[in-house]
């Protein structure tokens, strides 16, 4: 077969009748022409098998109709609409909750609690005390609400405030102890600098390490102490010229007992310490130097204190 015939489209053009007269003339003289002509003629006489289109059409109509008649399956949503509503409610709840989230800590009688705040500052909460703070935005607003007694070890950062009913303590340094009970307010500064503002007197004092201040009978008392850390965190409560009422109150909190103070002069001052481990020993260490005696009412469990002078 000659090369020009094998060309990509030569034969195709021949079939389509698109050859030029010269090309056709040349092609007719080639050996291949008779065979190819015969193939072409013969193949045009071929017929495809009969195709019964009407039969197929009626079959199709039937099929298409049955397709339509077929009840379409009910479409069930994978996620029903109410789930979205429920999710929205849950998310809204969650956002609301985290926005206003408050951490609340509370200690019962004879219980102490160590708390680590979000900025790694630590708080030790003494017996029968409450502590509240907002978790969200803690870094920018370090403020706590305290009722009771707690020891603070504050990490560096923006101002750290402890709000109590009796006053506000603002940290200018790092470690301090706060006592705020009904009518009593006491702050001891162990490290750094603390500013104490009394809400009753409306005065403020800056405490340096070893300084302590208390508000008794609407008077601000300042004194020095020489402890590195508040002793109650080590199992002992220490007092320095403290009204005896506060000392007895501390015993009540520590040992979960009730003391009957009706027979004694609660304005006396006490200097010393009592242990948290032994009630008897604690009572003795407080009562004996103060010239008090005590007796236990076995029925009510109330410990009655008496002044020795009266006997």
């Amino acid at each position: 077969m000659e090369k020009y015939i094998k060309d990509d489209s030569f034969l195709a053009r021949w079939i389509a009748g698109e050859l030029t007269p010269q090309e056709l003339e040349k092609f007719k003289k080639s050996d291949d022409y008779p065979v190819l002509k015969k193939i072409n003629d013969a193949s045009q006489n071929l017929k495809a098998p009969t195709f019964n289109d009407q039969a197929l059409l009626s079959k199709l109509k039937e099929l298409n109709n049955s397709e339509q008649a077929k009840p379409k399956g009910k479409v069930v949503k994978l996620i029903p609409n109410w789930v979205y509503a429920a999710a929205a409610v849950v998310i809204a709840f969650g956002v609301f909750y985290t926005m206003t989230m408050k951490s609340h800590f509370q200690t019962g009688f004879s219980e102490q609690l160590a708390i680590v705040l979000p900025d790694n500052s630590s708080v030790k909460l003494n017996a029968n005390s409450h502590l509240d703070y907002k978790t969200l935005g803690w870094k920018s607003n370090r403020a706590l609400q305290l009722e009771g007694e707690a020891f603070f070890d504050v990490e560096k950062g923006k101002s750290f405030k402890v709000n109590t009913d009796s006053g506000m303590v603002e940290v200018l340094g790092t470690e301090f102890n706060v006592i705020s009970r009904d009518s009593y307010f006491e702050v001891q500064c162990m490290e750094g600098k603390v500013r104490v503002t009394s809400s009753k007197i409306g005065d403020n004092v800056i405490l340096l390490p070893g300084d302590a201040v208390r508000v008794v009978n609407n008077e601000l008392e300042k004194w020095d102490f020489s402890l590195k850390e508040s002793n109650w965190t080590l199992g002992e409560s220490t007092f320095n010229n403290t009204p005896i009422e506060q000392v007895l109150y501390a015993i009540e909190n520590q040992f979960n007992i009730t003391l009957d103070k009706s027979n004694i002069d609660t304005n006396k001052r006490f200097t010393g310490a009592f242990t948290h481990r032994d009630l008897n020993l604690a009572l003795k260490t407080v009562a004996v130097p103060m010239g008090l005696s005590y007796s236990v009412n076995k029925e009510t469990g109330v410990i009655l204190l008496n002044s020795n002078n009266n006997n």
Partner: peptide, 22 residues
């Protein structure tokens, strides 16, 4: 269309070669 023409030509060439001379 080009591809059609090419296949057409190829088909004829194949047929021609397989049928040989008559």
């Amino acid at each position: 269309v080009k591809a059609v023409e090419k296949r057409m030509s190829l088909a004829l060439i194949t047929l021609r070669e397989k049928l040989g001379n008559i």
